[in-house]
Design a protein around this nucleic acid. Structure first.
Lengths: 208, 208, 208, 208
DNA sequence: GATGAATGAGCGTTCATTCAT
DNA sequence: AATGAATGAACGCTCATTCAT
């Protein structure tokens, strides 16, 4: 029994779960190990989470909440839009790299295979994407008339960020790669894509 | 016991594993289920794979081999470089979406956590990245002088493609999103990033 | 939290237990479910029942009490003895079929296996049997001289009734069987056995 | 690891289950305890029984098979019909008292609450009842014209036998009762009921 | 080359019960 | 009188792996 400050067993369980998750991976996350890490009995965990799924959902929820906070904060900084977009990108990557525990459960868990995945979690993610879409529209005035197009762009930004974080986390990178340059270039290409607001028709056709 | 043509039990095991993987997901992939699907005994599988890890490694290896074939083939098509880059992007995304089973084990399993993950697999992935880097250098002549810079660009292309595939597979997308436009825009932004060959210094600084 | 009139928590607990018992069966009867049904905490139940066994004993006691009431009432109806015997049989079967929850715990739980099963419960059952024995003696004057013989007859009556109820409740009956005829015939055979007062020596020997 | 003669683990498991069942009751029957009694690991039991239900079903099946053998054998003895009926009754009661382990699972387990109770088991019980019905018709010529009526009578015979066995096994008997007289009287009343072939209309109405 | 038999460790979950407040 | 928090033991079951044949 360790002193959990004043957070209570519920918070301690979430903490321990996150730690174990990043250390051993989702597959290894078991109620027993969590209980051992917390220093309580297994059944005590069930006082705060009806089952393992709900515990994991709570973790995912936390993660989306953090992302939401990041995107809201970045969007409201008193800077020009492109600057705010860049800031958002940078903070998103930082968050992903600094909190692989959240990142893994947020994106690497395949929800169709997770029973009873609550729709509320999807809504929380969509909320963050809405704000990013607005930011994109601020950056590229010609996208203000088409929410659909702006939404597509926002998702591509997200894809870039997600790709960068997950390849780094999955340790799939070439060891010869300069990681910082990798991150900077990816952020730049995301911002450029929005700034230029190129038409959907592939430039390749024209160019060469 | 089914007739496995002349491929032998090893190939049959890999076939069955792939099928089960795509149908039930990695978590459900168990030696007994594979054996049942193959129609042999569990212990027979151990004649060809020392343990489950090695079997999974073989599957991952297959996946990287497929990617290698894709990138090689795309690079050697008699078309202009940007066209070949675009082709590679498109084929990569298609592969990821059509073979989620490979994709899951290739990227969603955290290799550092898989015991004794052979470095050979990393090398195979690096090989594909080398070819992509060459293609990038063909597209952007100014990158030919800097392998490091070209490699960074190649990785960003990959990050975009990976991000698109994995967000789609993880079903984390906003339902309001036009999936085809999403894919096309992401490919375009990848190609654009290479074609323009912008300096690493962020355009934002100048622009606004 | 429901209003339990003025019966108090003890009565409310018994009520809820009975309801759960008939709905989900003994195996599913758990303290937490009872507490949830009552709308109180689990530990509150322990204020009125030392443990689960005692709670179940109280339920069994209720059951025997009901049977006692049935037999007393049937025995005191202003009708001829055989009529009263028939009435008792009919009411007993009705009670068993209408209250499978009591029936299950009264007969299907093997009391020797229930720790600390109080002898008082046996005494309550014996009391009912005493009254039935008296009724038997009223029906068959020649049994008045032998309490032992009358007691045997009363037990056989009970065996018939118990057999009918328990086979019906256990759903072991042939679906082709006419249930009402089954019940009527069994009652008739019980009454006949008493009415005829045949000697213990098997009729078979003489008859055929 | 004990020597199980040559019966194999499957038979040993059934043996141990029966023993534990009669000693501790169904509620206490757990895979762990069975394994401990057998002297093998828990998972070994799963090599022979897909789950606990199937194990219990196998036990029930054995029980019905034994009853079937009893009724067939009794019915084919070269004696007058009533004699054979009496014999059947006696053997049935003997079987129940000598093998409470079978008896408990055959009748005391509430099938509606047992998931996936196979219909085959019901059919096996119905088969025994068919033979008993035929025997009843041999005893009472006037029942030969009505299968339904004969079936009712057969069931009442069964109810008597079942009632006797289960009250004895449940130790619900008055200690003052002469057990042998109880058994004999019940058998006699069963045989009498068939022999006399009384009409369904209650004798009570006429008699008194 | 192939297998059937066996196992120990581990899983998520439920339970009756205790005890300080 | 009442409860919330906690727990240890047990449950049915699945798993990767071993090994004698």
């Amino acid at each position: 029994m360790q002193p959990w400050t004043d957070t209570g067993l519920r918070a301690a369980t979430l903490d321990a779960s996150r730690t174990l998750l990043v250390r051993d991976g989702y597959k290894q996350l078991s109620m027993r190990k969590i209980a051992a890490a917390v220093g309580c009995s297994v059944s005590s965990i069930y006082l705060y989470f009806a089952n393992k799924d709900q515990l994991v959902h709570a973790l995912i929820d936390e993660g989306f909440q953090r992302w939401y906070e990041i995107v809201v904060e970045a969007a409201s900084v008193p800077e020009p839009p492109l600057r705010r977009l860049e800031l958002h990108c940078r903070r998103y990557i930082d968050f992903g790299l600094e909190h692989p525990e959240y990142y893994e459960i947020m994106y690497m868990l395949n929800p169709p295979r997770m029973a009873r995945f609550p729709k509320e979690l999807f809504r929380r993610a969509a909320r963050s994407m809405d704000i990013l879409t607005q930011l994109v529209q601020e950056c590229a005035p010609e996208l203000r008339e088409s929410d659909a197009e702006a939404r597509v762009r926002a998702h591509v930004v997200w894809a870039i960020l997600h790709g960068v974080v997950s390849t780094i986390l999955a340790a799939r990178l070439d060891i010869r790669l300069d990681r910082d340059a990798y991150i900077e270039t990816s952020i730049q290409s995301a911002v450029d894509m929005i700034r230029q607001g190129r038409p959907v028709a592939l430039a390749v056709a024209e160019g060469q």
